[in-house]
Design a protein around this nucleic acid. Structure first.
Lengths: 248, 248
DNA sequence: AGGGTTGATGAATGTTTTTGCAGGAATTTT
DNA sequence: AAAATTCCTGCAAAAACATTCATCAACCCT
């Protein structure tokens, strides 16, 4: 097999599987590891692949993370844009924390006049920048991980609220396992918020769709609307629609 | 699985869920905990994540306050330095908001183990950066001017507290008129805090000494200690000492 | 045709990287 | 204070790597 031929084979293999192992290649092509290594070096040199210890990765695989701090920032903005359309003047709104909710806070129109309840420090900091929004903070112990208030006192306060709409920034959602999270205290708070709202809206980037975590918040039937950055007609949403969730 | 591949996976997981546990990862990827730890260290080294005991956190979730540019910043730092010496392990501490209190928050030693109660959003954001400090937030309506919670609910919560020490960032103090302020709601909160503490400490830059505002918080006899950036033996303090206030 | 050059390959050798493990220190939880 | 986790350090084995060298085929030039 010719050198050029071999390298094309390697490229094809990488684009197919996003990665190759040196050992796999040398077995497949039946040449020494050194030869494969030389090939990979050349391909990496000309910028077609990314060489790593043990093999190589496709360039598209390494889509540089961390654009400007917040992961998937643009997508979250898009989600926030959709979410604000659900809020009307005079509403009582309950929100959790999380970076997606923060984007929602930033996207609130200046003229909107509403009352926001939250236990998230960062979210509250955003809300108070808006001239016509009244902010009620739910107090109690602050969880350092999530920067929201947790605990019995917070939950009993939440239960006294009767909100029009609740925005949940969620960590994982799955058609079968419903809404899940990884922090027990946070789960309790989210449960309470769901109970205290007429309408429940979940915000999440599409990447979290069909993932799950260890602790359950609730089944899909507690959810009224799901908002992601994708259009509402994607196939991935079929299972959710079937369970009565509206996709926005 | 290649090392780089693994690290991309970890990054993804963190950005998705804001945190990961070492144990979860090593189960998911099926490598030893040491390997995961090494990966986390490297990712932390290059600044992509924040490593903590037991796992790692997303970077975008960890934002600190910028206080450079605050008026009389150096003086406030000096005040904070003096104030922290009053706090002991195990204490229950009640604080207001304000830039001076923010400096106090930043000056807290890492090893200090105490419980802080506050209704100030910025102060709470600072406190939660400290590893051994428990933060209890006093909830209610948030005043946009002062960024602290005000209202009857907050006050009744404060009255349930029995704190060892209370730090007041104050707006005006005068030997004759005592402590004064200019926001009715804030005054109510400060009054309640004073009532709920064994010891009351006022922090202020010397500039505010011998000034007054429209609304009264209390006479000088509610005050135990007054801290400014100046030394305790200045003449200006004589009137305060005469009324039983200790100067630090 | 024949000697010289070039490029590709595989083998030999020593180095570096990666990984898991043992143990003791540090930290967290009970 | 005790128990349980988690962490760090050093170590060792395996895998992967870089470097050098020898071989061989293809090519080029008189």
């Amino acid at each position: 097999m010719l050198k050029k031929e071999r390298q094309e084979f390697i490229l094809r293999e990488i684009n197919l599987h996003n990665k190759v192992l040196t050992s796999d290649l040398c077995e497949a092509i039946n040449v020494s590891e050194d030869t494969i290594r030389r090939d990979l070096s050349e391909l990496a040199e000309s910028g077609d692949i990314i060489k790593v210890h043990g093999g190589a990765l496709s360039k598209s695989f390494h889509v540089s993370f961390q654009t400007n701090g917040v992961y998937s920032h643009d997508n979250k903005k898009k989600i926030a844009q959709k979410a604000v359309t659900l809020i009307r003047d005079g509403m009582f709104v309950l929100t959790t924390g999380g970076t997606t909710i923060l984007e929602l806070a930033k996207a609130l129109p200046q003229h909107l006049r509403a009352t926001f309840f939250t236990g998230s420090l960062p979210a509250a900091m955003e809300y108070i920048h808006h001239p016509n929004i009244e902010v009620i903070f739910i107090g109690d112990r602050i969880s350092k991980n999530s920067k929201i208030t947790v605990g019995g006192d917070a939950i009993s306060k939440i239960k006294q609220i009767n909100a029009d709409i609740c925005f949940l920034g969620i960590n994982a959602i799955d058609a079968e396992h419903g809404l899940t999270d990884n922090d027990w205290d946070v789960v309790q708070v989210k449960k309470a918020m769901i109970q205290s709202s007429k309408k429940v809206v979940a915000l999440t980037i599409a990447e979290k769709i069909n993932t799950q975590q260890k602790l359950k918040i609730g089944d899909l039937d507690v959810l009224d609307i799901l908002i992601t950055e994708m259009g509402p007609h994607e196939k991935i949403f079929d299972a959710y629609k079937a369970k009565g969730v509206e996709i926005l």
